[in-house]
Amino acid sequence: TEEYEYTDEQQAREAAREWREKGYTVTIEEHNGRWRVKTG
Rank of each mutant, 00 (worst) to 15 (best):
T1I: 14
T1S: 12
T1P: 13
T1V: 13
E2I: 14
E2H: 14
E3N: 08
E3C: 15
E3A: 10
E3Q: 10
E3V: 15
Y4M: 09
Y4N: 06
Y4G: 05
Y4C: 06
E5W: 15
E5T: 09
E5Q: 06
E5N: 06
E5H: 08
Y6W: 05
Y6R: 00
Y6F: 14
T7S: 12
T7E: 15
T7D: 15
D8A: 04
D8G: 04
D8L: 05
D8W: 04
D8Q: 05
D8Y: 06
E9H: 06
Q10T: 11
Q10M: 12
Q10I: 11
Q11V: 09
Q11A: 14
Q11G: 07
A12Y: 01
A12K: 00
A12G: 02
A12P: 00
A12F: 01
A12S: 02
A12Q: 00
R13C: 05
R13F: 10
E14Q: 11
E14F: 06
E14C: 05
E14K: 10
E14T: 09
A15Y: 05
A15N: 04
A15R: 06
A15W: 04
A15I: 07
A16F: 06
A16G: 05
A16M: 08
A16Y: 07
A16Q: 03
A16D: 01
A16R: 01
R17H: 09
R17D: 09
R17G: 05
E18H: 13
E18F: 15
E18C: 12
E18Q: 13
E18R: 13
W19C: 03
W19H: 03
W19T: 01
W19F: 12
R20S: 10
R20D: 04
R20M: 13
E21D: 12
E21R: 10
E21W: 05
E21Y: 06
E21S: 10
K22F: 04
G23M: 02
G23F: 02
Y24A: 04
Y24C: 03
T25E: 11
T25R: 09
T25Y: 13
T25P: 06
T25M: 10
T25F: 13
V26K: 00
V26C: 05
V26T: 06
V26H: 01
T27K: 07
T27P: 00
T27C: 05
T27F: 09
I28K: 01
I28A: 02
I28E: 02
E29D: 07
E30W: 14
E30L: 12
E30F: 15
E30A: 08
E30R: 08
E30G: 06
H31D: 10
H31T: 08
N32Y: 06
N32S: 07
N32A: 07
N32C: 04
N32T: 04
N32I: 03
N32L: 07
N32Q: 08
G33Y: 02
G33R: 03
G33A: 03
R34H: 09
R34K: 13
W35A: 00
W35I: 02
R36F: 15
R36K: 14
R36E: 05
R36I: 15
R36T: 15
V37K: 00
K38M: 10
K38D: 05
K38V: 15
T39Q: 06
T39V: 15
G40C: 06
G40T: 15
G40D: 13
G40S: 15
